[in-house]
Design a protein around this nucleic acid. Sequence first.
DNA 1: TTGTAAGCGTTATCAA
DNA 2: TTGATAACGCTTACAA
Lengths: 345, 345
Amino acid sequence: MSSKKPKKVNIKYIAKIAGVSPSTVSRALRDDPNANKETKKRILKIAEELDYYPNLLAKGLRSKRTKTIGVILNDLKNPLYYDTIKAIEDKLNEVDYTMILCDSNYSQEMERKNIITMLSKGVDGVILSPVNAKSENIKIIIENNLKAVCIDAVPNYKNINYVYVNHEIASFVATEYLIKNKHQHILLLNGPYQLSSSKAFLKGYLKALKKYSIKPNRALIKYIDLSIESGCEFFKKIYQDRKIVGNINFTSILCLSDLLAIGIYKASHELGFSIPNNYSVIGYDNIFATEYLSPPLTTVHAPKIRVGKYSVDILLEQIEGKDTEFKKIDLEPRLVERGSVKKIS
Amino acid sequence: MSSKKPKKVNIKYIAKIAGVSPSTVSRALRDDPNANKETKKRILKIAEELDYYPNLLAKGLRSKRTKTIGVILNDLKNPLYYDTIKAIEDKLNEVDYTMILCDSNYSQEMERKNIITMLSKGVDGVILSPVNAKSENIKIIIENNLKAVCIDAVPNYKNINYVYVNHEIASFVATEYLIKNKHQHILLLNGPYQLSSSKAFLKGYLKALKKYSIKPNRALIKYIDLSIESGCEFFKKIYQDRKIVGNINFTSILCLSDLLAIGIYKASHELGFSIPNNYSVIGYDNIFATEYLSPPLTTVHAPKIRVGKYSVDILLEQIEGKDTEFKKIDLEPRLVERGSVKKIS
DNA sequence: TTGTAAGCGTTATCAA
DNA sequence: TTGATAACGCTTACAA
C-alpha cells in the first residue's frame, strides 16, 4: 500500500510516514510532556523534511487560541500611529503572534464591522483606538469577553483596559506654555466635534485659560478634520475672512494634531506669513519629521511607542491568564520646545 | 426538550431555533441560490437577533478561502510604506478582506518565518517586499502556490507577480538632474549593500554618470542603513574626516531614501552648514512631510498608493481565478523639484 | 428546496 | 507513552 504525498502535508500524513498515530504526531509537534523523547525527535525530523507547516485554522478552531492580535485604528493615515504599530509588531514578533490591522476611518459602523471581524477570526485580543469613548461597539467587546486594550481614549466602560495619553494634560501644558509666552488670544484647532480626543483637548485648553483668568472665546474654538489639507484650507479661510474668528486678533494656534500644525505651515508658505512672527503654532503628538520643519515645530510629545508596548504587554498577560484585573494606564505627554512659538514682549 | 443558548451562537443553534437543518442555515447565510427566499429571510432575522457572527476559522478550514491577505514588509518603520498600507487596507475593506501585517526587519530568516505563518494561516494571497530579489523565500511562495505580489523589487523568478517602482530610473533621473545643475561630484548614499534596491539604485546612478561622461568614483558610493540617524551620523563622520570620501569635494548627495536625506538635514542643523548652498541633497520616495522641510526636499516621487492598489487588484483577480497570468508592472517614479538642489554656476 | 452525512486538520479525552 | 475517537463550526455532495 503506497502512501503518496498529499497536496498539503498534514499530521495524518506524517503519522503514516512515521508509523505512529496522528495524536502522537500532534503531541510531538506541540512538545507535549506526554511524548517519548525519541519518537518526538524522529517525528520532528520527518516534519522538517516534509516541509510541514501547521494549519493554523484547524488549530485555532480546535484550541480556541490563534496567537493573533487585532489592531483597529481610526485613521491609518495619521503618522501618529506608525510608531505604535511598529512597537506592537515588534513585541508580537518576539512571542510569535501576528497582527491583523484594520482602519475604521472614524466611522462607528466600520468600527463595529471590524470588531466583529476580529471576533469571527478568533483573535486572542484587540487593541482599539475607539471612534468614541462611549461607543456601543466597546460593549460588543465586553459582552463577547474579547480581551481588549483601548488606546487614544478613556472608554466609558469599567470592564476594559486602556492605555491613554492624557489629551487634557497635553492641551493644558501647551496652552499654559503659550500663555507664559504672553499669548492671550489662542485659536484652538480641534479635531472633529464628536471625537473623544477633541473633548479632552478642549477641557485642558479651558482649564489653562481659567487658571490664568483668560476668558475663553467661542469664536476661537474650531472643529475640523485631522489632516494637513484640512488645516491648511481652514486657516486660509480664516486668513481671508476674519469674521470666522469673530474678528479677534489671535496670536497663536494650538492644534490637536501635528497634522493640522503642518497644515498651517503649508498655509504660511502659500500666503506668505511667518511662523512664529505672525502666528505662533503648537502641535500635539510629535509625529515624524516635525523636528525638521522650519521652524522646528513646538509640540507636545505623545509616548507612542510606549502605548504600543504596554498595550501588548497587558493583552499577553491577560491572554495567558496571569492577570485578569483591568489595567488603566494614563501616560503623560510632555512639551517639546522648539521654534514655532514666539515670546511676545 | 429545551435548547439553551450555547456560549457562542453557531449555525447549529440557529438551525434548532429556526427548526431547520444546519445546511439550510448555512445556505441562507451564504445567500446560496438553493435557498427559499422566505426561509432565508427568516433565518437571517434569527441570526441577527442572536448576534450571530460566523466562525471564520471553521469557514476557512472547510472552504480553503479566508478572505485574508498577508502583507510582509521589510521595515515597518519606514514611512514609505504607510501610503501603500493605507491603500491596501482601503481596497481590501471594499471587498471585505482583512490584512495581516508583518515586518521582516531586513532579515531573510524572519521573512521566511513570516511567509510560513501566512501559509499556515491560510491567507488567500500575500504582498511581499522581499529582503532580496533572489531570496530563497520567494521559492517557498511559488512551491506552495501562494498567490503573491512582490513590491519594491523585481524578483529573480518568473512565476510571480510584481509591482515595481523602478529604482534604476529613479536614481538615473535624480543623477541627471544633479548633473544638469552642474554637479560633477555626487555622493551616493545607498542602502545596505545586499538590498536589491541598492543595486538598482547604483545602476541608475552609474548610467547617468556614464551618459554625461563623468567618471564614477568608488569613494563616493556608500552603503548605510536606511534611517534618519544612520544618515545623520554617517554624514557627520564624513564632514569630520574627508578621507572617507577620498578627499573629494563633492557638491551634492543622492540618497536612496528620503530618510537619509532628512538625516543630512539633521546633520546640517547640528553642524551648521547650509542646504543647498554647501551641499545639494536629493532624496527618493517623496515620503510624508518632505515638502514642508526647509528647504523643501527635492526628491523622486514613488507612486506608493498605486503600488498598494495595483497589488491588491492583481491579487484579487487571481484569487477569483479570473486571471492566472503573471503580472509584471513597472511603475515610473518622477522627479519632484523643490528647494534642496542648487544650480552651480 | 431541504436534510443527511462526511470531512477540512487539528486537539482533547479516554482507554489501552 | 500511545492510539482510537469525538469534536471544534463550517461547507458540500448527495439523496430525498
